[in-house]
Simulated scan of single mutants.
Amino acid sequence: MIMNRRIWICISLSALFVLTGCWDRAELPEKGFVMGIAIDKTDEGKILLTTQIYRPSQGVSAIGAKAADTAYMNVTTENDTVSRAIRDIPINLGRKAQWSHIRLIIIGEKLAREQEIYDVLHFFYRDHEPRLTISLLIAKGKADQYLKIEPLIENTTSQQLFQSAQSASSSSGKAIFTDLLKLGIQLKSEVGNALVPYLYFTDDPPTVTNVAGTALIKKGKLVGRMEPKMTENLQMLLGEYQSGMIDIPCPGPTNNSKKTEVVEIIKFQGKLQPTILTEDLLKVRVRIKLELALIELACSDIMTIEDQKKFTRNVEETIKGQIEETIDWLKQKKFDAVGLGNKVYIKNPHLWKQWKPDWDDRFARAQFDIDVKVKITNSGTSIPKTAIKK
């Protein structure tokens, strides 16, 4: 027994001598970890790349010297393409850029309108370091100015904007979160339209960033912008709405016309289904179910079942009207933002081949049948359900 144990120990020790190390590894001090980038186009047609690098040294060093106040630094490079501008980063930084931790890509409006976005982002789809979960934003004006502001609560501006994009989508419905994977699927789909969150500064001081509204991408380029309010309705059409609040106008006399009541959506179900009636007529059924909590009541007293039914009907009509307004706006723009053409392709590929060349016009002629069902499940108070008299 002792002899067997000694033999196994000798074998284990011998195995250590044949293990290899990472002879070509890059040490941490040789890397600059990228948190976010901004891509712009100069007047000369070149790419202006602003790269935000995480600064690891914070607090007080071992010898008592105070470290830098910020947790990041920005490096600016300019070249003919994005990949060439990236290769110039070590010239300024003295380290190789590491892309495995990047959270955000901001594209300036000028570049987005003049050059196909997919071509701009080739490096991030082909290189092995960047991940397809990188968030994307289209910025009003130049993109680099948004990385120059100080973050409100996060360590870096890139992380701050990344969190804003996620929260705007999940908590208010005023933006549609998009990453590299989602963008690639949309651009390479049958319709080819894509939706990207829109980034801009507030007009009134103090100047802060807003991630709200949707940049509309057609044939790879920016063609327009949808307002935040309509973006909420678009999320419902897409079936992606998670949470948010909706203003409900007070019905009745004109003195109530400017008053609004507020409800919070706590549960959402939505489905959009195309129905091909003839080879020239397309009808779309939209079914939406909502569970709401009452937040603010400015002109309604819900004391009986009839009061609740009346209030529910007003909410249903309001939401239906807002969705119809959004659909009419998309029809005027001839922009299929709901991926309706992709659904037609899945349902009838042969018919889609006939419809695809003039799909924008067909989308504008499509008939939408919208049905909204609302259920009030919470009064918004400590009482778990709406207080009514039976």
Score class of each variant (00 low, 15 high):
M1K: 05
M3G: 07
N4T: 15
S14W: 06
A15I: 15
L19S: 15
L19A: 13
D24M: 11
V34K: 09
D40K: 10
I47N: 06
Q52S: 12
I53E: 02
I53S: 03
K66Q: 15
A67S: 15
D69V: 11
Y72E: 10
D80N: 06
R87S: 12
R87H: 08
D88L: 15
W99Y: 10
I106N: 02
E114W: 00
E114C: 01
Q115G: 02
Q115R: 04
L121K: 02
H122C: 10
I138F: 07
I138A: 03
K142T: 08
L152P: 00
Q159L: 01
A165V: 10
S170F: 10
L180A: 07
I185V: 11
G192H: 00
N193T: 12
A194P: 04
A194G: 05
A215T: 04
L216K: 09
I217E: 03
K218S: 10
L222S: 04
V223F: 02
E232M: 08
D247L: 12
P251E: 13
N256T: 06
N256M: 07
E261T: 07
I265A: 12
Q273S: 04
T278I: 12
E279N: 07
L281T: 14
R285N: 09
L290I: 00
A293H: 11
A293G: 15
E296T: 14
A298P: 11
S300L: 12
Q308T: 08
F311D: 08
N314G: 09
I319V: 04
Q322N: 15
W329K: 14
L330Y: 09
V338M: 11
G339C: 05
K343W: 06
V344W: 01
H350P: 01
P357L: 06
Q367M: 07
N378G: 03
S379E: 05
I388L: 05
